[in-house]
Each structure stands twice: as C-alpha cells, then as structure tokens.
Design a protein around this nucleic acid. Sequence first.
DNA 1: CATAATATCTGACTTAAGTCAGATATCGAA
DNA 2: TTCGATATCTGACTTAAGTCAGATATTATG
Lengths: 290, 290
Amino acid sequence: MLDPVSRVRRFNRAVTSEVGALDTSFLGRGRPLGAARVLNAIGHGRSDVAELRDYLALDSGLMSRLLRSLEEEGLVTTKPHPDDARRRLAKLTAAGRREFEAYETLSNAQAQAMLARHSQPEALLAAMDMVAAALGRNRISIAEVDARGEQARYCLGEYYGELSRRFERGFDVARSRDPDAVDMMAPRGAFFIALSDGLPLGCVGLKGTGGAVAEIKRLWVAPAARGIGLGRRLMDAAEDAARKLSIKILRLDTNSVLSEARQLYRRTGWTEIDRFNDDPYPDLFFEKRL
Amino acid sequence: MLDPVSRVRRFNRAVTSEVGALDTSFLGRGRPLGAARVLNAIGHGRSDVAELRDYLALDSGLMSRLLRSLEEEGLVTTKPHPDDARRRLAKLTAAGRREFEAYETLSNAQAQAMLARHSQPEALLAAMDMVAAALGRNRISIAEVDARGEQARYCLGEYYGELSRRFERGFDVARSRDPDAVDMMAPRGAFFIALSDGLPLGCVGLKGTGGAVAEIKRLWVAPAARGIGLGRRLMDAAEDAARKLSIKILRLDTNSVLSEARQLYRRTGWTEIDRFNDDPYPDLFFEKRL
DNA sequence: CATAATATCTGACTTAAGTCAGATATCGAA
DNA sequence: TTCGATATCTGACTTAAGTCAGATATTATG
C-alpha cells in the first residue's frame, strides 16, 4: 500500500511530531533545554567537560556558559582534572542530584505511561529495540568482557533460548559441549559483546586451548539487531583477538538451521570442513586460516 | 537485561539524538527551520493559514512573518479565502513548488539511504510501522470506504495472507464463503478501514441482507497495530452502522486459532452460538443482539 | 627552556524563535 | 446598521542558541 520510503517517512513524522511528547521531561522544570541536557548528561555519569561537549555537540563557549549557569544555580561544581589541570570535571551537588532525580522520575513515568497504554508491550518494545539499534548502529561498540560477567551471561541466556526455539528438537545446554568460561578469557581466549547504549545486542566467544588452534563459540546477534552487520563486527573482533594470541587456525561448528550464520561464514573466508567433534547439535563445520 | 522503561528511554534517546539526522531535509537549503516547515506544509496541501498555524503549532504573529518571508523569497503567494475574506489561503508559486520538490527529493533519498544500510529492511519497516502506530494511536481514524476500493482490497489481501499463515492447512478464498462486496456497502452493509497517516491498519465489513440480521466479516488488524485497541474501534464502528441500518442481530464466525479476536468478542458482549453455516474454515460462531 | 598544542573561558556578536499587546479588516447576528 | 467575534497582521519586545575571535592556563615535545 505504502512504498518503503513512504513508510520510513511516516515513521519520521510520527516520531518527530511526537518527539516533544516522547520525552518532555527535559522541559517543564523552568530551565532551558540546553542547561537541562547538560545537567542530565552529568547525572548519567559524564563528568569530563570535553566529553560532555562532544556528546551534546556543543560549542566550547556555549558549554562553558551552560556550566556557569548550572553552577550559579548551585546544581553543579567543577574542578580541574587531577591528571591534567587544563581539563575540568563537572559534578552534581546534592541539590543538582535532586534535580537530576526529578528529571529521571518524570522521564520514567512517561515511558511507563506509554507502555501502559499498549496491551502488547513486549512486541512494542521489540520494535523499539530494533529501530533504536538501526538508528544507533554506528554507536554500537564491541567490548571485551569477562565471560562469567552479567552481560555475558545475559547474552548466553538469550542465545540458548533462541537455539531451543529454532532447533526442531530443542536445545539442552547440558547435552552440548559447553565451553568453560576460562577458555574464553585471557590468556587463552576472549569474549566479546556488542553494546548499544547499555543494551547488549550480541556476543561471540573465542575459545583457546593455549595452542595454535582455537574455536569460535556462541556467536549470537539479538533479533532486534539483525541486518546491521553486527555478526561481522563481532567475528572481526574475535579474529583480531585470535591473531594477537598467535592463533593460526580457527574452527567453528554450527547448525544448518542457523542460515544467517552460515551465510556470514561463507562470505568471510571460512571453508567447510569435516566434523571435528561429536556434539549432537551442530551439522556444519568450518575452518579459517589466519 | 534492561527493564521495559529503560528500553523505552533508550529508544527515545536513539530517536531524539538521531532526530536531526532522521530527516535533515528541512535544513541544508539555507532557510530557517520554521520557514522550511511552512513551505513543506503548504506543499503537502495545507493552504488555509489557520490550519497551517494549528498544524505547526505556531503563534499567529510568527506564522504571519514566516509567510511574509516566503512571499519575499517568491516561493508563496497568499490571497483571501473566497468565502471569507478574513481568512487567507497560501499557495506555492512555480519556484516554491520546485523548492518543495527539492525538499521531498532530499527526504526520500534519506529514507532510501537508511533502508539501504539495512540488510533486512522488511523487518525494520515492520518495526517502524509498529512504533509509528503506537505513537500516533490517537491520530488513527476509522473511515467508511468502498469495499471494492484500493484500500479495502489491500486490507483484504493482508487478511487472507494472514489466514493462510495461521491456519494449519492454509486458507483458500475460493473455498470460503467470500461475501459479495455489494453486501458490504450501503444500503445493505458497510466497510470500514482504520487509517493512520495514509497507511491502512485494519478493516471490518458489515454484511447486510436487507433484513434484521447481519454478519460481521473480515475483521483484520495489521500486526504493526495490535495492542492499541483498533479491533475494538473497528467493531464499534460496524455496530454503530448496524444500528443505523436498523439491524437487530449481528452474527459472525471465526476460528479458534485467532485467539485475539475471540477474546475481543468475549469481552464486548458477544455470546457463542451454534454453527450457522457450512463454511469449512470457522469453528466458532458468535451472536450479539443490538 | 622555548614553543606548539590543548582545554577552557570570556566578550561581542548574530540568528531563530517565540510572546504579547494592540491595529486592521471582515463576518455574522441581533 | 451596529457590535461583538474572528482572522490576520505589525511593532516591540525577550530568550535561547549558536558563532567566532581571541585570552588564559596548562601540558607535551623537541
């Protein structure tokens, strides 16, 4: 009915005409938008003035004046950076923190209200995640994390959940060769996640043995983040890490049901090889020489 | 990992920080945002100055000045409304139309580029449709249309497509008792669609016989618009139309696979009755006395 | 230590946007 | 025809936001 371009533009209209309404918490507390944005950015943990300026895309003069006005209001204090006295650090005062919390409360209440109006909030949230991931794709960072940490465990949980949905006979971690977390940590291996504004959207593990051969394990990309090249970025990170560990041969196993993964491997220099383990779930095996 | 409220707020951040980037076509042609918005609103068919002011939420003084500046640029002409010389009508000049088309081209190109960067544009579009529907829910209108028209046919096509996906043995219109379009038009019946900023999001047919009994047919709500109460609004429209046609008893058939529909009927005063036709697809039958 | 580079700040601007009180013209109804 | 209501316009403001050229202080580098 509507062509794709019209649908994107319809989305833009909906969002921009509601955008005031999307998060009006920045208004309504008798403070210009600029100052409110700075206060909130500081409240969210950004203290370095240069970082604030960069994040909010403000001119240095303007930034400086906004900080002064917040200082005059008694909401913020600044002091030189201990390592470099040219740089300045901003911090909320007690009053500033109260004001920040007031903004947070407003903003949370608005988000809550929008969800409450919907009778299928999970579907709506999934759609929002997807749009947010697509719009913020160049702000998704790949980070090496502890494979036993909270974020890694969350990703693995989602990964297992997806396998049990997609495999015809389900998936039971206990029956699979679950790699030891220590094999996916320095100095033998590594574990990476893709992080978008606080939400983990993907992961991959590099399972080392200490020798020249290592395995890629647990490659997962959140449904909301498919189609924006995250799988590739995660694999690149794992390969780079493998090279740094002097690993010469990478292997992986997968299941033909996971067609996106197979396509990715085929396109990025992996070659199919014979089965190299007796794990019951995989039916495809790949190798890549670095 | 992130709670629902945080996910909504993450979406808000993604959208608001990209919102300049969402549609920057309003900038970049050496004209202040306000004037560009007025030019575009006129280009999209709004000519009445009061309507423009209302749509763009501008003060009358500001509106007046923006129109003057566009007139000075030679992009717009205004003239008194033929029926009421107090009101004024704005119109694009040839140069204004060219300028408007340039904005349109930019905007389309941006939408196109955003889609091109995504390798699963259909999923992204579906997510955008869902978010747009949820944000613009109070701007969705129910309209009576010709059951043979383009919009009705689009909705019916989507409806049949969904049935064939959800019914275990598929769905073949030819095998079903497809109601004649004329039975779903005045004076015997009616056909309604839900329209959101140009995109049809749902439909329902009232199939009359000329007597006191009529049937509800083809209730469909687009996946992107589920959870915002559209089914109910469509049914209300059909019931109102039935009352106006002096219909006393409404009937409908459905399939138990369509659980959302069944829930809706149960909650809105319908009672289950015995099978009243030999259509192979339905297995549930409802009645409502008006 | 001299000098260039860096981070922030200040002062002097411009522009966009918005507000508000009237002015002007026209319309609708008594 | 008169008068209140309505639609738009004009003039006189305010505020927010952004720009830009230096000033100042500090750090890095040869």
